Deep mutational scan, measured.
Amino acid sequence: MDGTRTSLDIEEYSDTEVQKNQVLTLEEWQDKWVNGKTAFHQEQGHQLLKKHLDTFLKGKSGLRVFFPLCGKAVEMKWFADRGHSVVGVEISELGIQEFFTEQNLSYSEEPITEIPGTKVFKSSSGNISLYCCSIFDLPRTNIGKFDMIWDRGALVAINPGDRKCYADTMFSLLGKKFQYLLCVLSYDPTKHPGPPFYVPHAEIERLFGKICNIRCLEKVDAFEERHKSWGIDCLFEKLYLLTEK
Rank of each mutant, 00 (worst) to 15 (best):
D31L: 06
C132R: 12
K228V: 14
V87A: 13
V199L: 14
D168T: 12
T101D: 12
K20R: 07
A154P: 01
N21K: 13
W33G: 06
V86E: 01
N213T: 07
N21T: 11
G194A: 07
F56L: 11
C183E: 09
P160M: 03
E205M: 05
P139L: 11
K119W: 04
D81W: 03
L174V: 09
L26E: 09
K210H: 15
M170A: 03
H84V: 07
K219I: 02
E11V: 05
S186D: 15
I149V: 08
S124N: 03
K176L: 14
D54K: 02
K191Q: 11
H52D: 12
D168E: 14
I128H: 01
V34P: 03
D2V: 07
G3V: 12
M76P: 01
K145C: 09
T4Q: 07
K122V: 12
V18R: 09
K20W: 11
T4D: 13
K20P: 09
K51H: 14
G88N: 07
G45E: 06
C212H: 00
A157T: 03
M76Y: 02
L182R: 00
Q44W: 07
N142G: 09
R152T: 11
L217V: 10
H192S: 06
A154M: 05
P193Q: 15
F223D: 14
A202K: 15
H41G: 08
L181T: 04
H192L: 07
E225V: 13
C70W: 03
L217C: 12
Q42P: 06
H192W: 14
N35H: 11
M170H: 00
F136V: 04
F56Y: 13
Q42W: 08
V74A: 05
G45H: 09
E224L: 03
Q97G: 08
P196G: 03
V87C: 10
C216P: 15
I204Q: 01
L105A: 03
F79W: 05
L155Y: 02
G209A: 13
G83C: 03
Y180R: 00
T16C: 01
Y187G: 07
S124I: 10
K60G: 07
K164S: 08
V184G: 05
A154S: 12
K77I: 02
G3S: 13
H227N: 06
A167C: 14
V120Q: 10
E237D: 04
D147L: 00
F236G: 07
L155H: 00
L181A: 13
I128T: 01
K164Q: 15
K177Y: 09
I112P: 02
V34R: 12
F99E: 00
D15K: 08
S229M: 11
L235R: 02
I211P: 08
V87T: 12
Y180N: 01
T55R: 02
K177W: 03
D162R: 08
F208Q: 01
H227L: 11
N159G: 05
T25W: 05
G71W: 03
S229Q: 15
V23G: 11
K228W: 10
D162K: 05
K164M: 13
E203L: 15
Q42L: 14
L181I: 13
Y240L: 12
I158A: 03
T113R: 10
S61L: 15
K60Q: 13
L155N: 00
P200F: 01
P195S: 02
N213R: 11
K32C: 06
L69R: 06
K77G: 08
K164Y: 11
T169Q: 10
Y13T: 13
T25S: 14
R215G: 13
L174R: 02
Y13H: 10
G88W: 01
S123V: 03
W78Q: 03
F40G: 06
I232A: 08
L217M: 12
K60A: 08
A39L: 13
K60I: 06
V89R: 01
D221W: 14
C216L: 13
L48I: 11
V220F: 05
F99W: 11
Y166P: 00
H52V: 06
R140L: 13
K177S: 03
L155M: 12
L49K: 05
I143L: 13
G88A: 04
E110A: 09
V156T: 15
C234K: 01
L185K: 04
L69V: 05
T6M: 08
K20G: 11
Y166N: 00
E12T: 10
N104C: 13
K58V: 15
L242F: 09
L242N: 00
F146N: 02
F146K: 01
P160V: 03
Q47D: 08
T243F: 13
C165R: 14
N213P: 01
N35W: 11
R215Y: 13
L94T: 12
L130S: 00
C165V: 15
E43P: 14
L242G: 02
D233K: 04
L49W: 06
I149Q: 01
E203Q: 10
V23L: 13
E114Y: 08
Q44R: 10
L207E: 01
G175E: 04
Y187K: 04
H201E: 12
K119R: 07
C70S: 09
W33D: 10
G161S: 05
L138S: 03
P196M: 00
G161C: 04
E75L: 02
T101L: 06
E224K: 11
E110P: 01
G144E: 08
H84S: 03
A157S: 15
A157M: 09
G45V: 11
E27Q: 09
S229K: 00
E75H: 07
E102M: 02
D137R: 05
G3P: 13
N21L: 13
P111H: 15
W230I: 14
K119S: 10
C133F: 03
Q22V: 11
M1P: 15
R82T: 07
R163N: 00
G231W: 03
V87Y: 04
T55K: 11
L69K: 10
V74S: 09
N21V: 13
E114M: 06
F67P: 01
D54T: 15
F208I: 02
E43A: 12
V87L: 05
P139E: 11
E203F: 06
I214E: 04
E205L: 14
K219R: 15
L53W: 12
L207V: 09
Y240E: 01
C70E: 01
T190V: 12
V87K: 03
D9V: 12
F121R: 01
K219C: 15
S125R: 05
E27T: 11
N213I: 02
M1V: 10
K58T: 14
T55L: 11
Q103S: 10
D31C: 15
A157E: 08
F79M: 11
N35E: 14
K60D: 07
P139T: 15
G231M: 03
C133Q: 03
T243L: 09
K122W: 04
K32Q: 08
W78Y: 09
C165Q: 15
L181D: 00
C183L: 12
D31K: 11
A157H: 14
R82F: 05
P160C: 05
F79C: 03
I135C: 07
V87W: 04
D151V: 00
K20C: 13
L138T: 02
D188K: 08
D221R: 08
L69E: 04
E27Y: 12
F171R: 11
F178W: 14
S7V: 07
L155T: 12
Y187A: 04
S186R: 06
G71F: 03
S134V: 00
L53R: 05
Y240C: 04
V65H: 00
E110C: 08
C133S: 06
R226Q: 15
N159A: 04
R226P: 07
N35K: 06
I143S: 02
G3F: 04
V23R: 12
S186C: 11
I214T: 05
Q22P: 05
K228Q: 15
E75N: 08
G209Y: 11
A73K: 04
I149E: 00
A222W: 03
E205A: 13
Y131S: 00
Y187S: 08
S85Y: 13
M1K: 13
L63Q: 14
N127G: 06
D188W: 04
K177E: 08
R163P: 00
T38R: 10
Y187I: 07
P68G: 01
I204W: 00
L105H: 03
K245P: 14
M148Y: 13
V86C: 05
R64K: 14
T25E: 12
R152G: 07
Q103F: 12
W78T: 04
V220Q: 14
Q19T: 10
I158K: 00
K32Y: 12
H201L: 14
P195W: 04
F121I: 05
